[in-house]
Write a protein that binds this DNA or RNA. Structure first.
Length: 801
DNA sequence: ATTCGTTCGGTTTTT
DNA sequence: CCGAACGAAT
């Protein structure tokens, strides 16, 4: 195992961190306060394990977000080598378990090409079931039922268990929804028939796999010699149990977390998983990291004083040796509208004062809906002159909201991909069977569905064997169905024939006409859809290129789906930085910014009205604010408005109770609003004018990360709202920082044995062979980490020294 | 079957 | 205010 700095990595840790890294003899809990170097400990610990001789593929490191996993992998790569870091089992719970389940699918009665239902797929299936069962969907609201099913799944309760559980049954009956159990059972069955798993199933079936197949359990227990888990306070029971099962043979477990940052109980996270870990592991060693390296004293102390108001925390006192810092301004605004302009103005001002870049700013809010006004203010640069003309817009980037893969046209294309991989995927089928319109309407689809339910098969099965199932449709309709079936079959045959993902995607576009139907209409939203489909194609292409370049032949559309279906919006790389980040507090967990605005700190919003009636609810909201404050390195600015436009009407609001929980000495409540009096007056006047006139269209044509409003098109009606902007999908390669344009494609005659190159991923190396014999010229390179690789010249991007 | 207009209901956070 | 969902019209 080759490490760059040998033992040097240990010198970059403080005593507590080093202790936590060095202890590798048994189960370990690291309570890591905000900003205390949690990720650093995990990263260095893995490096340390590698140094001790652990094989990378025997280390499992679980995170909650793809982003966290990716960042950790990059850091480890820098300290070791791509060769080593790429072999670690590192990823989100869902993605790691998805991989393991795909390998063992047949053991739990699934085809190995099972597909994954996202939240909207499973909701639409539940809705369908509710209707099929002739239940009232006003009563059995799909979202509610879904949440309930999700909750019990995370407690590992199957439909049979549910039926046997008097508490659940009674609760449903008392709640007037006695049929939840039946919906759950039907849902369960139909997912199974469709060969599909939802997010919760990935955890559930992983448990089933380990529970019912001792040989599999033993194999993985043997294989995973060390298991590390990040953000353990946010694990639910299903995750907790898997971790325990896998780790209990070697007992080499390191979990890192902070009970004060547990903010996902609505998703089944159970704080007791971390608080009572010592009950399961009597020899658990506890390490505390209490020194904050991120924030000023003011921010750290203010956060401490807030979280103290919660009961039942693990006692710890976060301290920092950082500078004292400025007080936290608490700015009262008249309206949400004014609040947005105040934030925009403050950003401009602080940026000028501190010489910051826009990347140094984040605006955090409780709900996604709050982003709209902010976007509008940012597009206007936070200022208007007397004529209302737009001045210097503030570039921003929104995380959350609609992700790229959720956009209608993109999801349609993806559903074709899914159908090719797994034609039994009923949700994908229902979605695209008549898109583009091919004369297969609701009535026909309803018949196919009905027949499928009766026979206990997938809709595809019914359509594929029309003779075995009497479908009461006329000849014309039957012909249309047959046409669809054979189209999918042709594509599937191509996939099985080994076509790569790009070839498949191109064929899908061509055969299904999804792109060409958008050509007829030149409306802006249609153009935007075309762009998005093109963007998806690019993403697929990059995926294939990357695979090619690294000599990995898993480049089919099946592989593409497996790797992307668990990606979210947060995982998108933004090509051009220099933007203010707008996101929910939840999405900000684990991140840090020099300057953080927390907006809408009002009763009924933060804390949310939904959580206000229970103590646990309030405490979770308080932790959420704690998370928000501790994201800030230097400046934290809190705003609230006394009136807010919500659900179509203006409501008056009051300051959040949480502001009273923060020690006054760290706040400057009377912070005056920025801007000159005239500006301020002007902003207010503008705000008032807005109430009179129809609002200036907040719908702006923006896409692919371009948040500036193109003035030339502002007269045409636009239908894509700002928060729906497409985002460029992440490239599969962990991009090397710095100037990517240095890395380009080269031809064989530029190269010779002995030449030095720098590869965009693998770093520097020496060419050991140039092979132009085949159709595609290849070179062989020995990189400085000792690994030798073959690179295809038509794909590999590097610089010749 | 598709499209367009109207009404109605709802509102947290996300892998 | 926004989207879903339903009903009526080519």
């Amino acid at each position: 195992m080759k490490l760059q700095d040998n033992d040097n990595y240990l010198s970059q840790l403080n005593d507590q961190q080093r202790d936590a890294v060095l202890y590798c003899d048994g189960p370990q809990l690291v309570i890591a306060g905000a900003g205390s170097g949690k990720t650093r400990v995990l990263t260095y610990k893995i490096v340390h394990l590698l140094h001790l001789g652990y094989d990378p593929w025997r280390i499992m490191a679980l995170t909650f977000t793809n982003k966290a996993a990716r960042e950790m992998r990059e850091r480890i790569e820098a300290l070791t080598s791509p060769e080593v870091s790429s072999r670690l089992w590192m990823g989100t719970f869902h993605s790691i378990f998805s991989q393991l389940l795909h390998r063992n699918a047949e053991r739990i009665g699934f085809a190995h090409d099972f597909t994954i239902y996202d939240t909207s797929d499973s909701r639409s299936l539940i809705k369908l079931i509710v209707r099929d069962m002739q239940l009232d969907d006003k009563l059995y609201k799909p979202a509610n039922v879904q949440a309930r099913i999700s909750k019990v799944k995370n407690m590992l309760i199957s439909p049979d268990d549910y039926a046997r559980n008097p508490d659940l049954i009674d609760a449903d009956r008392d709640g007037g929804m006695p049929h939840v159990v039946d919906i759950y059972r039907a849902y369960w069955k139909r997912c199974h028939i469709a060969g599909a798993m939802d997010f919760d199933d990935l955890l559930f079936y992983m448990n089933i796999l380990l529970r019912d197949h001792p040989d599999v359990l033993e194999r993985y227990q043997q294989m995973f010699a060390y298991i590390l888990v990040d953000e353990y306070q946010d694990t639910n029971f299903a995750q907790h149990l898997i971790v325990h099962q896998l780790s209990r043979l070697h007992n080499r477990l390191c979990v890192v977390g902070d009970d004060a940052q547990s903010i996902y109980s609505f998703r089944g996270a159970n704080i007791n998983n971390i608080l009572q870990l010592n009950k399961i592991y009597p020899d658990l060693k506890i390490f505390k990291l209490e020194q904050n390296y991120r924030s000023t004293q003011v921010i750290t102390q203010a956060a401490n004083s807030l979280i103290e108001k919660n009961e039942g925390q693990i006692p710890k006192k976060l301290f920092t040796a950082n500078q004292h810092g400025d007080d936290i301004p608490v700015i009262r605004c008249f309206s949400d509208y004014e609040e947005a302009y105040v934030v925009a103005n403050q950003i401009t001002r602080i940026k000028a004062r501190q010489g910051d870049s826009y990347e140094d700013f984040a605006v955090l809010y409780r709900t996604n809906a709050q982003s709209r006004v902010l976007e509008e203010a940012f597009s206007n640069g936070g200022r208007r002159d007397t004529h209302g003309n737009v001045r210097d817009a503030i570039p921003y980037r929104i995380y959350g909201g609609l992700s790229f893969y959720q956009r209608k046209e993109v999801k349609d294309a993806i559903c074709y991909f899914r159908l090719i991989v797994n034609p039994n995927d009923d949700e994908a089928l229902r979605r695209v069977i008549n898109y583009p319109a091919r004369g297969i309407g609701d009535v026909t689809v309803g018949k196919v569905n009905h027949c499928a339910v009766e026979q206990g098969v997938s809709m595809w099965e019914v359509m594929n064997h029309p003779d075995s199932f009497q479908l009461n449709v006329n000849r014309g309709t039957q012909a249309k169905l047959n046409g669809f079936v054979s189209m999918i079959k042709d594509l599937a045959a191509m996939n099985e024939g080994g076509a790569n993902a790009r070839e498949m995607a191109e064929s899908v576009y061509r055969k299904t006409l999804i792109l060409s139907v958008l050509m007829h209409d030149k409306s802006p939203e249609n153009i935007s859809r075309q762009e998005n489909l093109q963007e998806l194609l690019n993403a697929v292409g990059e995926f294939v290129d990357n695979k090619h370049e690294t000599g990995d032949d898993h480049n089919t559309i099946t592989d593409f789906l497996a790797e992307t279906s668990l990606l979210t919006d947060q995982d998108m790389d933004d090509p051009d930085g220099e933007k203010v980040t707008l996101m929910t507090v939840h999405a900000a967990k684990g991140l840090e910014f020099k300057n953080v605005f927390i907006v809408g700190v009002e009763e009924d919003l933060f804390p949310s009205a939904m959580s206000a009636d229970t103590l646990q609810g309030i405490e979770e909201e308080r932790r959420l604010l704690y998370v928000a404050i501790t994201r800030a390195k230097q400046n934290c600015i809190i705003t609230y408005a006394t009136s807010r436009y919500r659900n179509g009407e203006t409501k008056s609001c009051v300051m959040s109770r949480f502001l009273r929980d923060i020690d006054m000495q760290y706040l400057s409540i009377d912070a005056t609003r920025e801007a000159t009096p005239t500006r301020s007056w002007q902003d207010t006047a503008n705000a008032l004018m807005e109430q009179w006139q129809p609002r200036p269209s907040s719908r702006r044509y923006t896409w692919a990360g371009n948040s500036q409003t193109p003035l030339s098109t502002s007269s045409t009606p636009q239908h894509s709202t700002p928060s729906q902007r497409a985002v460029r999908p992440a490239t599969a390669s962990p991009a090397v920082s710095g100037d990517a344009s240095r890395f380009t494609i080269h031809t064989a005659d530029e190269l010779a044995v002995g030449k030095q190159i720098v590869h965009s991923r693998f770093g520097q190396g020496t060419v050991t062979q140039v092979d132009t014999s085949g159709a595609d010229a290849k070179i062989e390179v020995t990189f400085n980490d000792g690994t030798a690789r073959k690179l295809l010249l038509k794909f590999a991007k590097f610089e010749i020294l």
